[in-house]
């Protein structure tokens, strides 16, 4: 079973395009940021801890492949699954897709740490999170 969930859906703005005529890479990262906020909920974090700025998922490593150009006006969505998890971290695999054509635009592997925003330190995933993380897990070899 695929563990992918939709983590972002939106559009490329003209103001996000650069001299090369396509969306600048910084705005790919902004979509990953939006996706991470959604993944906070999908991995079982409570709304109160997120909105109360108590805990969050903080990205500590990223690896991206830019696969096709995105132009102003293109509609896009992101799908995200879990590749692996450790005591304090989760590794996501994101795929950004051109919603009109189905073409992949970006694949990205991001490792995030579950962070206590008061102590400013990574903390262990909760039991509730471990259950959700397992539900979203995909086989790393299948995804290679």
């Amino acid at each position: 079973m695929s563990g992918y969930v939709e983590s972002y859906r939106g559009q490329v703005l003209a103001s996000e395009c650069d001299l090369l005529g396509h969306m600048n890479i910084q705005f790919y990262i902004s979509r990953l940021s939006q996706a991470i906020w959604n993944m906070c909920y999908f991995v079982g974090m409570a709304p109160e801890e997120i909105k109360g700025s108590k805990r969050a998922l903080a990205t500590v490593h990223q690896d991206s492949n830019y696969l096709s150009e995105l132009m102003a006006g293109d509609i896009i969505h992101m799908e995200t699954a879990v590749l692996k998890a450790s005591t304090k971290t989760i590794t996501f695999r994101h795929r950004l897709i051109n919603s009109a054509t189905g073409d992949p635009a970006l694949t990205n592997i991001s490792t995030v740490a579950y962070m206590d925003l008061t102590a400013r330190k990574a903390i262990p995933l909760t039991e509730a999170m471990k259950i959700k993380v397992n539900e979203l897990m995909v086989d790393a070899e299948d995804e290679a």
Partner: peptide
Amino acid sequence: SEAFAHLQNALGLDPA
């Protein structure tokens, strides 16, 4: 506005 773009796509008005 981003949502409206997806609605247009559903109507056949894809970005291209």
